[in-house]
C-alpha cells in the first residue's frame, strides 16, 4: 500500500495532449512582435489533425501559413505570424494526440508598448 502510494505520488502526468508551455508564454506581454507561436504539448501530436489559429482583438486572423509539427520534436506545434502591432492576441489550439484523443484550448498574449 505504501509502495502504491509512493508510486502514485511521484508519477508523471501523461495521455491526452495538453499545453505544456508556449512561446509567447501563456498570458505574457512582449516588447516586440514575435515571429511565430510555438506550443509544446504533453504528448506527441498527429500533424494531419492539429492546428493553431491566432486572432487580434477584432477577431481577424493574424497567423500565416499552415501550422506544422516540428520535424524533430513531435510535441511542438508551430504557426507563423504577421508582424503584430501592439495589442491583445488570442491563440486557439486544437490537437489530436498520437493516442487518438482530441483536446483544445485558448490563451492570450499581449504585444506591449
Amino acid at each position: 500500500m505504501t509502495f502504491a502510494a509512493c508510486v502514485l505520488a511521484t508519477a508523471e502526468a501523461w495521455a491526452h495532449a495538453f499545453l505544456d508551455h508556449a512561446a509567447p508564454a501563456v498570458g505574457s506581454t512582449l516588447g516586440a512582435s514575435p515571429a511565430a507561436v510555438r506550443i509544446w504539448f504533453t504528448q506527441e501530436l498527429e500533424p494531419a489533425f492539429s492546428g493553431i489559429e491566432v486572432t487580434d482583438a477584432t477577431g481577424a486572423r493574424v497567423d500565416v501559413g499552415t501550422p506544422v509539427v516540428d520535424a524533430k520534436d513531435h510535441t511542438l506545434l508551430i504557426v507563423g505570424l504577421k508582424k503584430l502591432p501592439p495589442g491583445e492576441y488570442k491563440v486557439h489550439w486544437h490537437v489530436i494526440s498520437v493516442d487518438t484523443h482530441a483536446t483544445e484550448g485558448n490563451f492570450s498574449f499581449r504585444v506591449g508598448p
Binding site: A4, A5, V7, L8, A9, A11, E12, A13, W14, A15
Partner: peptide, 15 residues
C-alpha cells in the same frame, strides 16, 4: 496495474 495507474492518476486525490 499499479504502474499504469501511476502514470494516469498522479495522486490519491486524483483517485
Amino acid at each position: 496495474g499499479v504502474i499504469n495507474a501511476s502514470y494516469l492518476v498522479d495522486s490519491v486525490a486524483g483517485l
